[in-house]
Simulated scan of single mutants.
Amino acid sequence: MTKVKTGIIGVGFIGEEHLKALRAHESVEVIGIADQSTDLAAARSRQYGVPFYTDPIALMEEARPDYVTICTPHFSHTSFAIEAMRRGIHVLVEKPLTVSASAADECLRVMRETGMKLGVGYLQRLRTAHRKVYDLVQSGFVGRIQRVTMVRTAWFRSMAYHRSNPWRGTWKGEGGGILVNQAPHDLDLLVWTAGLPSEVLVEMGTLGHDIEVEDDVCAVLKWANGATGTLHVSTNEAPGRSFYEIAGTKGTLRLEDGCVTATALAVDSHEFSETTQERMVPPPTGGEMLFRQPPEPVEFSTLPGMHANFAAALREGAPLVCSAEEALQEVELANAMLLSGVTRQWVQVPVDRAEYDRVLEELMATRSLEAYKAKRAGR
């Protein structure tokens, strides 16, 4: 079987993880890499035995890959994705799809115009435990969702991490902190399994690092069906927690440390409430199931599967692990949370594009979340 050909744009930390994942891949071959650093590109070229380019456009036009894998800083995702699609090249982009919903809108517009495929690397969707939560929700196991609780504070990052690249921890370089860097995995899991909230209220700050952007976010969430939820993400906490729970009228799902606990009710709680003569006795449970995720040898062990899926999408029309339309929902939520965090007001989802873009420009000019919040408070 002839392998699908990809070119990797950006071969820093995450780009190299893709190179490792594709070194002996059964369906995908790396035919070129590109990076703005000639030294880094040359070193990766020697190490992995692939041609290198210092210009991503040259990679697209000379190597002509079937798709490019974009692993560059967040703001450049939009331009590289559009350049590739306009040249008839499909795109797999690292999370997030874009920094802003308005930029995501433009990517989707070009995708539809060109007919190219645009996928986003939310590789945690391929984890066994995460897929189990999704499948159980889709099966109706929890009934109507009433509450969602997520605590993801196992993202500890030191100042050495932020100093490792000049764009890290800055508004101009990253477009945000944990909301656009680490937590997109968590926000994607939430909207994938529980749906996109309709409204958010957020308290956020820079609590543990000398950086411009947010490193701690606490949110209250509302859904259109009346469900409510809370979410807390942080890069400051140690030891951190990884906890996610969905409670519905028919049961509860709990995901923690790769283990899913599914507790079913014997009868729908709303129906029970309407018919029981008991005043304070809850409905009986109908049993509990435990699903444990197989141990993963390395953090990025699902990357080969992500590329295998993209190759299957090109060859056979298989559905993408995460389409651009789905990835837009995560961007919507992240944008709404940032807006709420600086305005300290409830923010509707979908987000107001013009307002978000204006606030982001002001944050880039101020270069400090805390200074910007203080400035707004003094208005």
Rank of each mutant, 00 (worst) to 15 (best):
R353V: 10
L253W: 11
E203Y: 06
G88L: 07
R344Y: 05
L207P: 02
V28D: 03
F291R: 01
P283S: 12
H209E: 06
A194V: 10
H90T: 00
A63K: 02
I211E: 00
T206H: 04
H232G: 03
T149L: 09
P239Y: 06
A318F: 07
S242E: 13
S301R: 05
T249C: 00
R152D: 03
M85R: 08
M159I: 05
E212V: 01
A227I: 08
W223D: 05
L92T: 08
E274N: 01
C71D: 11
P304C: 03
E271K: 13
A194M: 12
Q348M: 00
G208F: 09
K172R: 15
K222T: 01
P350N: 02
P239V: 11
G251A: 06
R157T: 10
M289L: 02
L196C: 03
E296G: 05
V342W: 07
V347I: 06
E326M: 00
T206K: 04
H18Y: 12
L22C: 04
E113W: 11
E299F: 04
I14K: 04
V68G: 12
R112M: 10
T149Q: 08
V30A: 00
G248V: 08
P51C: 08
G205T: 10
Q36G: 15
E370F: 00
Q124S: 06
E62R: 13
A238Q: 10
T54D: 05
V4R: 05
Q146R: 15
S27K: 12
P297D: 10
R241F: 12
S242F: 06
Y244L: 01
P319M: 08
D268R: 01
E362K: 01
M289E: 00
Y161I: 05
N309R: 11
S76D: 10
C218F: 10
E326R: 09
V4P: 09
L126Y: 02
A183K: 07
F13A: 15
V233A: 04
M60V: 03
M1H: 14
V68I: 15
E271H: 14
T78E: 12
A24G: 02
L360K: 04
T228C: 09
A194S: 14
S45T: 01
P350T: 06
I89K: 01
